[in-house]
């Protein structure tokens, strides 16, 4: 059983399981949307004293903070007991494109799981301009953008689109404009730094 689950899942199974997560949250009286956790954490940190946006009862998001804690535990469980035998099998075209940017891809699971390019994302890299832009700058844009746009992949792309929300469709178009701009125009510049 464990061995069966430990294989990488086909996208159709993965999509159905992601749907199940959304279904369970709706059944439990909530909704699927992870980025609101950032607002709650800022509010807990006292930001509500200074700015109206954080001046709300964060306890209405207590379930989300517990969900987030669960997802970290889920990561621990999956990496400890359910790790795939091979690194993520991405397409050769992507491996080649990334190698042109100087990013190496793990060939065996000893070299890495293929979750993160660890030669770019590490504490040592914070001393370089490239690392600072990708790690600190990237994180900043995620926090700013998701809260400005009113949601991330879970809230807009999955919940919002499946509920036929026009603001979510617009947001998802934005996700792709930003992502394509970064990948195709800005990555060659950032990775040459």
């Amino acid at each position: 059983m464990i061995e069966f689950i430990s294989q990488p899942w086909h996208w159709s199974i993965s999509g159905a399981m992601l749907f199940l997560v959304m279904l369970l949250l709706i059944y439990l009286g909530q909704k699927f949307g992870v980025s609101s956790s950032f607002q709650a954490m800022c509010s807990i940190g006292g930001a509500g004293k200074r700015f109206e946006y954080f001046n709300y009862d964060w306890k209405k998001h207590d379930w989300l903070l517990v969900f987030v804690l669960g997802s970290i535990i889920g990561g621990v469980i999956a990496s400890t007991f359910l790790a795939s035998p091979e690194p993520v099998q991405i397409s050769t075209a992507t491996i080649n494109d990334l190698s042109a940017l100087g990013i190496t891809y793990p060939k065996t699971s000893i070299e890495g799981a293929g979750f993160l390019p660890i030669d770019v994302f590490n504490f040592e890299a914070l001393k370089t301009l490239k690392g600072l832009i990708l790690i600190v700058g990237g994180g900043f844009l995620i926090g700013f953008g998701t809260r400005y746009g009113g949601g991330c992949t879970s809230g807009h792309a999955i919940t919002g689109l499946s509920n036929l929300q026009l603001p979510s469709l617009i947001a998802v178009v934005g996700f792709f404009i930003g992502g394509l701009l970064m990948t195709h125009l800005l990555f060659p510049i950032i990775f040459s730094l």
Binding site: I142, F144, G174, G178, L181
Partner: peptide, 8 residues
């Protein structure tokens, strides 16, 4: 907001 998040 969506575009900014997409970059990140």
């Amino acid at each position: 907001g969506g575009t900014i998040f997409g970059l990140g």
